[in-house]
Amino acid sequence: MSTARFSPFELLLLKSRSQVDTATLLLLGWVLVHRQHVSEGQRRRRLAQVTSQFRHGHELGPVMSIAHSQDLHAIQLAAEVVRKECSKERSLSVMHQAITVATDDGDISLANHYILRFLADLLNVAPATLGTLFQELTGQPLRQPEDPSRDAYWQAHDPDYYARKAREEAEAAQRAKASQAEQEQQQRAKADKQQEKQQEKKQKQQEKKQQKEDARRAKARAEQSSAEQAKAEKARAEQARQEQARQERARQEQAQEESRQRQQRSSPPPPDRTTRALAVLGLTPGASKTDVRRAYRRMAQLHHPDRFYSDSEHQVALASARFQRIKNAYDYLMQTY
């Protein structure tokens, strides 16, 4: 029981002589708002024309202003009323009106593609029926909506942008080529210098090696004469020291490895199947196994098809599809966790 005030649409619905008509009016207004290239006056006239048979008995102005504000609660309420009260014939006529309002010649905005399909699902109109109705009313088949999340859509709709981009890229490539040639010249000069330096270094190293060799030979001769026990002890000490150093190094490496792994873990995980499966259960990434199990229990109780047994067959089918989806997500999570 909420104590909020009645919203404008609720008041309208309570005052209306026919609730279904008012609700249908709002849904049609919602479609009209998403129609492009028409003025507000044309919208109102169109709505009045299509709904001349309605018995709601109030002004169209408030309905259109609610539709413009895209109030989700109002639209949900309207959808519930329409679904509850519409017979099969009435649903078809509402669908008919929605298509009329959405388009004159089959040219339909992207948002309305999805809104019309939502209304068709709401009113239980099959895809084939919707296609036929659309074809009859507009003379055009109902196509699949285009996809503005793809590169191909923008290549077709905004060729100017691609032409500009190609020109810029060509210029950049030319500039890059010029600078590359310059760099190569510089590098060649540098390489020559380096070679000379290296040769000098090599000579120096050879000389040094010779000196060391001599020194070693002299030392070896001296050591042979010294006692062998001392040498053995020294070797053992050396070995111990090396062993210790190796262990130290291994420990350091391990610590580095661990810190690197921790860094990898702290970076955001990719949006993969696990995230999606968690979202189906209404969880955020990072949920524990117990959370998953508890969420699954709750969801399964809420959406079990047996709960909808008393409703229509359609509702049961929808619920079992939802339940299957929840169960798949749960099974997947149980395998991976």
């Binding site: 679904r83 699902d121 709401l122 989806r325």
Partner: peptide, 13 residues
């Protein structure tokens, strides 16, 4: 809306 009305598995979705 579809989630609230139980229409997440409609034929058009």
């Amino acid at each position: 809306l579809r989630a609230r009305l139980g229409l997440t598995h409609g034929a058009h979705w």
